[in-house]
Amino acid sequence: MSVNREELKRLIDFIHEEDTAEVYDFIGYLNMKRERETIEQLDLDLLSKDKELIRQVQKSQEDHTYGRIYNKEQGLRYLQNKISEFESEQNL
């Protein structure tokens, strides 16, 4: 849809005073929406080129496929054991 910007400006000039705040907020919303879409696209572009992130996702998918996943309790025990091992090494 093509909009004549001059006509749009003219319409804005004739908006009732009590509606101007809403129009102002809506224009701000549209600008923010466009900026967010641009940022999200940039993020996707960057993430799609991050080889380490892609490797981690592939490893995670592989771990899930082969059942190498922990439930909450197993994960907590694993971390507690790793902390204990680390602290033991520090005390040597």
Rank of each mutant, 00 (worst) to 15 (best):
M1Q: 05
S2R: 12
S2L: 13
V3Q: 04
N4E: 15
N4H: 10
N4R: 05
R5I: 02
R5T: 06
E7R: 07
E7N: 03
L8H: 05
L8V: 10
K9Q: 12
R10C: 09
R10P: 03
I12T: 12
I12L: 13
I12N: 05
D13Q: 09
F14C: 01
F14S: 12
F14P: 00
F14Q: 07
I15K: 09
I15W: 05
H16K: 03
H16D: 09
D19Q: 05
D19P: 01
T20I: 15
A21T: 10
A21H: 03
Y24P: 00
Y24C: 11
Y24D: 15
D25T: 06
D25L: 10
D25F: 04
F26P: 00
I27V: 11
I27F: 06
I27Q: 03
I27L: 11
Y29L: 11
L30K: 04
N31T: 09
N31G: 08
N31C: 07
M32W: 09
K33Q: 08
R34Q: 05
E35Q: 14
E35Y: 12
E35R: 15
R36T: 11
R36S: 06
R36Y: 08
E37R: 08
E37P: 01
E37T: 02
T38N: 08
T38H: 14
I39G: 02
E40R: 13
E40C: 03
Q41L: 12
Q41N: 09
L42V: 01
D43Q: 07
D43G: 00
L44Q: 10
D45A: 08
L46W: 11
L47N: 00
S48H: 14
K49R: 15
D50C: 05
D50Q: 03
K51E: 14
E52K: 09
L53S: 09
I54V: 01
I54W: 01
R55F: 15
R55T: 13
Q56I: 11
Q56D: 11
S60Y: 10
S60N: 09
S60T: 15
Q61P: 01
H64T: 05
T65P: 02
T65W: 14
T65V: 07
Y66R: 02
R68F: 09
R68W: 12
R68K: 15
I69L: 10
Y70K: 04
N71K: 07
K72W: 03
K72F: 03
K72A: 12
K72R: 02
Q74N: 05
G75R: 04
G75N: 07
G75P: 00
G75Y: 04
G75I: 02
R77I: 15
R77P: 01
R77A: 08
Y78L: 06
Y78E: 06
Y78I: 01
L79G: 04
N81L: 07
K82F: 00
K82H: 01
K82N: 05
I83D: 09
I83K: 11
I83P: 07
E85V: 04
E85T: 00
F86A: 14
F86P: 03
F86Q: 12
F86T: 07
E87D: 11
E89L: 05
Q90E: 06
Q90L: 15
N91L: 06
L92P: 04
